[in-house]
Design a protein around this nucleic acid. Structure first.
Lengths: 192, 192
DNA sequence: GCCAAACGTTCACTTAAGTTAACAAAAAAG
DNA sequence: CTTTTTTGTTAACTTAAGTGAACGTTTGGC
């Protein structure tokens, strides 16, 4: 279980035995059942997540409708805005599948950063990278039509189509479930 | 000129005289004329920016058309994806106005982080914050119609409408210039 | 194993954005 | 000052997504 995490980190910096032990001592691994709500609108959460296994999603409830905006799967990390800005969360976070996550808060980070300053460098690099990638996805979204976004998703995250209900994918792609259904039909029809 | 930068940083951590001097010694302040292209598609740039004064934008050229995806103004910082992933840039960056920017690369950061480790903490916190905010903007975009996005922009960054050509705003809002023009007309008409 | 809820598809209709093109206005270049 | 070039508006038409509703299917709870 820790292995996935350490393999991931090793891509950036191989860890020493002491460093690995320090992480294990933090006791950050948690199991959640499908459907578990990790964060609710209005809550002041202080924890961020790293997905070892499974899938979680963030969603807003607007006029009684769920609007899914993100999915996080294996090796993705996610720190809700409320962790950063100390305001109540505007969205929910829930498990799409049974999941194994690491769960950590800023105090735990502080402890580990003081013992091993390299970890802070790692976190800085990771979040700079995630920021640039998040902006690139946003750019992609802005410059594409709904159909192009669906095709792009097929290329880049085909697994999501198997793991996630379509109506959640629809709002993730910025459209209504009926539109996604129609687009899929259109594409199938074209191919015959 | 340095004052804007130090005031901004002071919101996160007040700097000592030595720290300020170390930054000034890096000689990172630059003046650019309106229209200057800072980064071209295909280039491997290694520099990130912080806007002291002025406005820069990033844009793609797709089928010969410019697609503007972001504007950075006073106190915004921006590190292009190519700086992070070592791949040729997929987009351009240019000055929308005469601008004063700080320009820094990872080696300069390394030097300053080694002398003052607090700076790395600052950069980590800043990029975590920017990441969470970038995701929130993306969420907003996904869950809104073109008209709602225009109205949101009026609320959150009304200055952009004065500073930036409308056809650039249009692609920033994920629509065609004609559509933005129509939306504006529709809104004016409704109000009478 | 049955029932209710959730999910996905389809359809007819509405609405809004994309497209193409013409033209006006403003800004930059000479 | 005049001429381009860039920018913005408008209009007619096309295309695709939103809406509301019906219906079939799957899923999960009991």
């Amino acid at each position: 279980m820790e292995k996935q995490l350490f393999n991931f980190i090793a891509k950036y910096m191989p860890l020493s035995v002491e460093e690995k032990e320090a992480i294990i001592e933090l006791d950050i691994f948690r199991n959640y059942k499908k459907g578990t709500v990790l964060l609710k609108e209005g809550q002041y959460s202080k924890v961020g997540y790293f997905v070892i296994k499974g899938c979680i999603r963030s969603y807003y409830v607007i006029d009684g409708e769920e609007k899914t905006t993100a999915f996080y799967t294996e090796l993705d990390s996610f720190s809700p805005l409320c962790v950063v800005n100390n305001k109540p969360s505007e969205y929910y976070v829930a498990c799409v599948e049974d999941s194994i996550l690491t769960v950590a808060n800023p105090e735990m980070e502080k402890i580990i950063f003081e013992k091993f300053p390299r970890f802070e460098t790692l976190c800085r690099i990771l979040s700079e990278e995630l920021l640039a990638k998040s902006q690139a996805s946003f750019d992609d979204f802005k410059t594409s039509s709904p159909e192009q976004r669906y095709l792009k998703l097929l290329e880049t995250r085909p697994d999501l189509l198997q793991r996630v209900p379509q109506h959640q994918l629809a709002s993730y792609l910025g459209m209504k479930p009926q539109s996604l259904s129609r687009i899929r039909k259109r594409l199938v029809d074209q191919h015959k």
